[in-house]
Structure formats: C-alpha cells, structure tokens
Simulated assay, not measured.
Amino acid sequence: MADSDNPHIAIQDQIPHNHCYGCGNENPKGLHIKSFWMDENVAYCNFRPQPHHCAGPIHFVNGGIISTIIDCHCVCMAISKGYQLHGRGTGEGEQIWFATGNLNVSFLKPVPIDTAVTLRAEVIEASEKKMKIVCELFSNEAICCRAEVIAVKVPNEWFHSR
C-alpha cells in the first residue's frame, strides 16, 4: 500500500467522484459497501443485507445484489491498486479508474438475508491496464460464493462526460 493509504479508511471513501450504485459514497440510494485493505493484495468487506435485497424466497439474498457487492468490492480494489502501482495513495493526483471486464460468480449455497456477509478478495495479477481478482463470500463462516473479476483500466472521460 502507498504510505497515504489508511487501512482504517474504506477504499470507497478515498475514491473521488464515485456515483456507483454498489460502492459509490456519492450515490445516496446505493448499497454503500466499504472495503478495507488487510495487506498489499488482500481486502475484506462486511455487508449487512436488508429485507428488500431478497431473492424470490424472502430469506435469501438476491443474486444480483450478491454479484454487485462482489463486483464493486473487487473493482474498488483494482482502482486502489492502480494508484499503488503509481506510488500514490488512493484518490491522490490524476484519477485512475477501472471497470468490470469480466465477472464470473459461482453460487455455491444460498446466502441468508438475516446475517451479515464477509467478502475476502485477493489481487492475483496486477498491471497498469488490467487486474485479476478472486473473491469469496462468506455467511455464517461458510463459503457461499466464489468469483473471479477481471478489471480493466478505463479513461477518465468515462466519468466526466454525459
């Protein structure tokens, strides 16, 4: 991690101009996930599903919500890692953006809606233009999902044009 990256401040709170539904602190109706570095390549996220995040059976979390929190956790890690590769703290200087190139989620068990989930992800490959991140989602200490995310660098213009 860069010296200015604080493991006690969520990665998402260091990324400026983030309006994403899953991870953007500037989206008042979003999920507002928060990810924290554990070491140079591993980060975790705790998320508490709400009743309206249900699947067809109301006691399980919707697969789209699960995919969103996994995707956002991993892409935010890629953004932060992009800053690290440039020797800067997350959000410092010219903005660096990554977006989802591929998201592959394996749903192993239903995710109960009445329990917080923990995501643990690791950056497996990192370059200036592309990152590979693997993620596991745990509920009640059981692995419920495994995922692989390929995040690709995108130009800043994506976020400043309408």
Rank of each mutant, 00 (worst) to 15 (best):
M131G: 01
A10Y: 01
C76Y: 07
P49G: 00
L103H: 07
G89S: 01
H52G: 07
F107W: 03
E141I: 07
N6T: 04
V61D: 00
V149Q: 02
L85R: 03
N27D: 11
F98S: 03
N156H: 12
M77K: 03
L31P: 01
P57A: 14
G22C: 07
P57M: 13
A2S: 14
V123A: 08
S161Q: 14
F138W: 09
C45K: 00
I9L: 09
C20K: 00
H160C: 14
P16H: 07
I9V: 15
N46V: 14
C145F: 05
E40I: 10
G87C: 09
V134S: 07
S161L: 10
C20D: 00
K29G: 09
A116L: 00
F36A: 08
S139Q: 11
D114E: 14
K81G: 01
W158Y: 13
C144F: 04
G22S: 06
I96E: 02
L31T: 05
V111M: 07
N102L: 13
I9D: 05
D3P: 13
F107I: 05
G30E: 08
N27S: 05
S4Y: 10
P57H: 12
H8T: 12
R146M: 12
A147G: 09
K29T: 14
A151Y: 02
I150D: 05
A121D: 02
I15N: 04
A78D: 01
W37V: 06
N27G: 06
E141C: 10
R88F: 02
C54W: 02
C45R: 03
Q95S: 13
P49T: 01
A151M: 06
V149T: 09
Y83N: 04
N104A: 13
V61M: 11
H17W: 09
N25E: 11
N102Y: 12
G87H: 09
I11S: 04
L119G: 00
K81T: 08
G91C: 06
P155H: 07
C145S: 09
N156E: 15
F47A: 00
E122C: 11
H52C: 10
I113Q: 04
E92F: 01
G82Q: 02
R146E: 15
V105W: 02
I65Q: 00
H32L: 06
E141N: 15
I70F: 04
I58N: 14
P7E: 05
I70E: 06
G24C: 09
I33R: 02
E157C: 12
E148V: 12
E141Y: 07
H8P: 01
S161C: 13
E26M: 13
V42H: 11
A142S: 12
D5G: 07
